[in-house]
Each structure stands twice: as structure tokens, then as C-alpha cells.
């Protein structure tokens, strides 16, 4: 597999990993932080912000917001940076095969 050692594939691998790995660590950490706060910082989480809406509810809904946002960010990144490279390599390999 010459392709795997080539610069173009290296770049594809790097642009996938350098995006997906740190983001995975980030959302896992953010989820854990939320779980830990819910467990051990009840007073803070129970702080009322407006009406009956408290910090805990806002943080919970924020988990939804960040999940949607990360999915969107990744898909944009994949469409812009990953798909063109992957398709170029694939079509060249299939033409050569």
C-alpha cells in the first residue's frame, strides 16, 4: 500500500484525527463536568436564574446545544476538508487498479 505512506493520504489522516480526537476529548470532558456538577455541586446547580429555570436545566439544555453544534461543525469540516481528499485518492486508486 504505497498510498498509505504518501503525503496526500497523510494529510487526510491528519485532518481527520486532528479534528476528531481533540473534539472527542472536549465533549467527553464537558459531559463529565456536567455529571460531576450535578452530583457534587447541587447548590450551584439549583441556583434559580429566571422563574423556575435554574442553572441545572440550562446546563442540561446546553449539552443538547453543544451536541448539535459539534455534529454540525464536524460535518462541515468533513465536507470541506475530508471528502475532497478522500474522493481524489479513491478515484486515482480505482483508475490505477
Amino acid at each position: 500500500m504505497e498510498v498509505q505512506k504518501g503525503a496526500e493520504f497523510g494529510e487526510l489522516r491528519r485532518s481527520h484525527r486532528s479534528f476528531a480526537f481533540p473534539l472527542t476529548i472536549a465533549f467527553t470532558a464537558w459531559y463529565l463536568l456536567y455529571v460531576l456538577l450535578s452530583n457534587y455541586a447541587g447548590g450551584f446547580m439549583g441556583t434559580k436564574l429566571f422563574g423556575n429555570i435554574n442553572v441545572a436545566l440550562v446546563f442540561g439544555v446546553l449539552q443538547f446545544v453543544t451536541t448539535f453544534a459539534i455534529a454540525w461543525l464536524y460535518s462541515r469540516h468533513a465536507a470541506k476538508k475530508l471528502d475532497p481528499k478522500a474522493e481524489a485518492i479513491k478515484s486515482r486508486m480505482e483508475a490505477g487498479a
Binding site: 455529571v35 436545566l57 442540561g60 451536541t67
Partner: peptide, 19 residues
């Protein structure tokens, strides 16, 4: 609230699948 807290892990999990 704890019921809601429980549901969130089921959603965040999909990012592992996606990424």
C-alpha cells in the same frame, strides 16, 4: 431533574459514533 440528567448520556453518545 434526575430523569432528564439520565437522558442526556444517550444523546451525547452519538458524537462518538459520528466522529
Amino acid at each position: 431533574y434526575d430523569g432528564f440528567l439520565y437522558s442526556i448520556g444517550f444523546l451525547v453518545a452519538w458524537l462518538v459514533a459520528l466522529l
